[in-house]
C-alpha cells in the first residue's frame, strides 16, 4: 500500500480512537469514583449513609443528606433567579432591542463569563452577604449572618446567567422570521406572537439551556463555598447556612490526615454529585424527547 493510503487509514483510526476515549470518559470517571468509595460502602450501609445527617468524620459519622439538600437548595435557588431573568433578556434583545443593544449585551455577557469564579466569591462576601444580613433577612423577620444558601444561590445565579443567556439568544435568533410574519398576519399582536409561537418553537432549546445551566451550577465550587456558610445542616429557610457537596470536597480534600474512611467519604460525595448531574441531564433529555413527539 502506498503512503497516502496509510495516512488516510491512520488519521481515521486516530479520530475514531479519540471519539471512543471521549465516550469512555464519563463511564471511567464514574467507575473510578465508585472504586474509591468502596471502603466506605463496605463499612456502612448505603441507605444509612444517604439518609443520615450526622457528619463527624473523627467519630466515624458520614451522613450525606445535609450536603445533598444543600446542593439542591443552592442550585434550585440560583435557577429560579437565573432562568426567568435570562429568558426575559433573551426575548427582549432578540425581539425588541435595537442592534446596538444586542452588541452591548454580547460584550457584557463575555465580560461576565470571563470573570474568575473567585472574584464572584469576593463580590458575594463584600456585597451580597452584608446586604442579606443587614437588609433582606431583617425585612422578612429572620436574623442571618448573611452566609447562607440564598447568598450562594444569588452568586451562582449571576454566574450562570451569561451562560444560559448566550444559549437562549442563539435559540431565538435561529427562529425564521417567516413564523413571526405568519402569526402577525393571522391577527396576533406582537406579544401574542412571542408567547404562542416563538416560545413554543423555542421551548426545547429553552429547556436544554436551563438543563445545561443546572449541570454547570451544580458543580460550581469556589464562589459558592465563600458565601454559603459551610455548616453541615439541613437548612430550614433560605437565610440559614448550608454546605453543598462541591464545597465539602474542596474544603476537606488534603486535610483528611489519618481519619479512617475520610478520603473514601469524599470520593463518595463526588460520586453522589456525579450521579445527580447525570440524573438532571437524563431528565432534561427525556423532557426534550417528550416534547419532540407532541
Amino acid at each position: 500500500m502506498n503512503r497516502e493510503k496509510w495516512i488516510e487509514i491512520l488519521s481515521e483510526k486516530w479520530m475514531l480512537l479519540a471519539t471512543l476515549l471521549m465516550c469512555m470518559l464519563p463511564l471511567s470517571m464514574g467507575i473510578g469514583l465508585l472504586i474509591e468509595s468502596m471502603p466506605l460502602l463496605q463499612q456502612y450501609r448505603l441507605g444509612s449513609l444517604i439518609r443520615n445527617s450526622a457528619w463527624s468524620p473523627a467519630e466515624g459519622k458520614f451522613g450525606m443528606i445535609s450536603f445533598i439538600v444543600g446542593t439542591l437548595w443552592v442550585t434550585g435557588l440560583s435557577l429560579c433567579m437565573a432562568a426567568p431573568v435570562s429568558l426575559l433578556v433573551s426575548i427582549y434583545v432578540t425581539q425588541y432591542a435595537k442592534p446596538w443593544l444586542m452588541r452591548t449585551i454580547h460584550i457584557v455577557m463575555d465580560i461576565l463569563a470571563g470573570i474568575p469564579s473567585v472574584v464572584y466569591g469576593v463580590w458575594g462576601v463584600l456585597v451580597i452577604v452584608p446586604w442579606i444580613s443587614q437588609k433582606l433577612a431583617p425585612t422578612f423577620g429572620y436574623s442571618s449572618s448573611g452566609y447562607c444558601i440564598l447568598s450562594g444561590g444569588l452568586v451562582l445565579a449571576v454566574m450562570s446567567i451569561p451562560y444560559i443567556l448566550h444559549l437562549q439568544i442563539e435559540i431565538f435568533r435561529t427562529i425564521p422570521i417567516e413564523l413571526k410574519e405568519v402569526s402577525l398576519s393571522l391577527g396576533a399582536t406582537y406579544w401574542e406572537t412571542i408567547k404562542h409561537v416563538l416560545l413554543r418553537q423555542a421551548r426545547r432549546g429553552i429547556i436544554a439551556s436551563v438543563g445545561l445551566g443546572i449541570s454547570k451550577a451544580l458543580g460550581e465550587t469556589i464562589a459558592v463555598l465563600m458565601v454559603v456558610g459551610n455548616v453541615p445542616q439541613i437548612p430550614e429557610n433560605i437565610f440559614q447556612a448550608g454546605y453543598p457537596l462541591p464545597a465539602l470536597i474542596a474544603n476537606n480534600y488534603g486535610e483528611m490526615m489519618s481519619v479512617p474512611h475520610y478520603l473514601s467519604a469524599l470520593m463518595f460525595a463526588s460520586l453522589i454529585l456525579f450521579l445527580i448531574i447525570c440524573l438532571f441531564n437524563s431528565v432534561s433529555h427525556w423532557i426534550i424527547y417528550k416534547i419532540n413527539r407532541i
Partner: peptide
C-alpha cells in the same frame, strides 16, 4: 408564503 411555515403546533 413561498415555503409553508406551519406554526409549531
Amino acid at each position: 408564503s413561498q415555503r409553508p411555515y406551519p406554526l409549531p403546533m
